[in-house]
Simulated scan of single mutants.
Amino acid sequence: MSESYKVVRRFRDQDGRVYEVGDVYPAEGLKITKKRIKQLSSTNNQYGQVYIESGE
């Protein structure tokens, strides 16, 4: 998946990496599943918060 997203809320990802507001997600070289993108870009996660949005 080569799409990139903009971080809109600070979070710690599953690998322990911390993303700050304004960062690009995922970090360069990392591959992320569609399921993970869906979790972070919607309120369908344990915190009910949106963490990323389309970077386009």
Rank of each mutant, 00 (worst) to 15 (best):
Q39C: 14
Q46L: 14
S42Q: 12
R36S: 10
G55V: 03
R12K: 15
P26V: 02
S4Y: 12
K31D: 11
D23R: 03
F11D: 06
I37W: 02
E20P: 01
I52T: 04
S2H: 08
K35Q: 09
R17D: 05
D15M: 03
N44C: 10
T43P: 06
E53V: 15
L40T: 01
V8Q: 04
R9P: 00
M1K: 08
E3T: 15
E3V: 15
V24L: 13
R9C: 05
I37M: 11
T43V: 11
Y19L: 03
V50D: 01
G29N: 05
L40S: 05
R10G: 03
S4G: 11
E3P: 08
S54T: 13
Q14K: 12
E20N: 11
R12V: 14
I32K: 00
I52K: 01
V8S: 02
K38E: 08
D15L: 04
S42Y: 11
K34F: 11
L40Y: 03
V18I: 15
G29I: 05
S41Q: 10
I37E: 04
K35C: 02
V24T: 15
E56A: 13
V21A: 01
Y51E: 01
M1L: 09
T43L: 05
D15Y: 06
E53W: 01
A27E: 14
N45R: 10
R36L: 12
Q39P: 06
V18C: 06
D23K: 03
P26I: 03
E56I: 13
Q46R: 13
I37Q: 07
G48N: 15
S41N: 14
G16E: 05
G48R: 15
Y51V: 06
K34H: 12
I37V: 14
V18T: 13
M1F: 04
Y25D: 00
